[in-house]
Amino acid sequence: MGTRILLNDFEYFEPETISDAITILAKYRKDAKLIAGGTDLLVDMKKGKIKPKYLVNLMKILDLRYITKDKRGLRIGATTTFREITASKLIKREYPLLFEAAEAMGTVQIRNMATIGGNICNAIPSAEIPPALVALDAVAKIAGRRGERSLPLEEFLMGIGKIALKSGELLTEVYARSPPPRSGTAFLKLSRTTADLATLNVAVRVTLEKNGACKEARVVVGGGVGPTLIRSKKAEALLKGKVLKEPLIEKAAQAASAQLKPRPTSIRASPLYKIEVCKVLVKRALLKALERTKAGGAR
């Protein structure tokens, strides 16, 4: 199938409110598909993998496009573009983890088009922003005919292309928790070229006690290491309550890499390579995050 034109005909909607979008979704159900940036969906449609009869463009809904902060965290509307995330001074200053992950995604052109909600809902295991969000205990906010509900992002992502949205629902917001005081974060991506999908993504957060011991840690690995990202609670448990020294960090990195389940047919690297490289990247990320706990404001 060629990629020059879109073969399939569809009816096109541009709702201006969330409730109008939900009404359209409820009416056409499985025949309707949501589009935001379109950088993944239109490729699949060109290749004939998806043939929606109704296409619902969310980009005219102003209520879905925002970056705001409240007392406990950061709200990002679902159709906020990657470009808007990397251009946000608030995110660069207070959520460097999200800035780094957003900047690691795609190219300038793709970041100008692609949205955070589209990236999450497309649920490809190599996505950059979900590991970073999970390291900040992010929550997915969902709207449907029966009202709103929330779900930890970790539970929202169920597998390759699989998310916890029910028919007629849409993702409206991701809510990332502000890192507590004495926190440091880091995001590292390994890929063949900057524009390529990740061979491996690592997002970590460490939060220290006043006495310097680790109060809480998050170690999240993505990039085709399983059906979705892997949060290593084993690595986190090893770090918790301890003073973070290099041998311990190495042990945690080892534990995280032992949890990976890359497919033998993985395109970008062999499973063995991913497991080896994970040890290195998790260690580097934890050391960087630890260093950043000392920086005070910058986390």
């Binding site: 990629t3 020059r4 096109y12 541009e14 589009i35 379109g38 950088t39 239109l42 490729v43 463009n57 980009m59 470009r83 300038v108 052109q109 793709i110 100008n112 088009m113």
Partner: peptide, 13 residues
């Protein structure tokens, strides 16, 4: 003013 790929942009958008 921002670069985008026109091959993945719907004309209606």
């Amino acid at each position: 003013g921002e670069p985008v790929v026109s091959c993945l942009t719907l004309a209606v958008a």
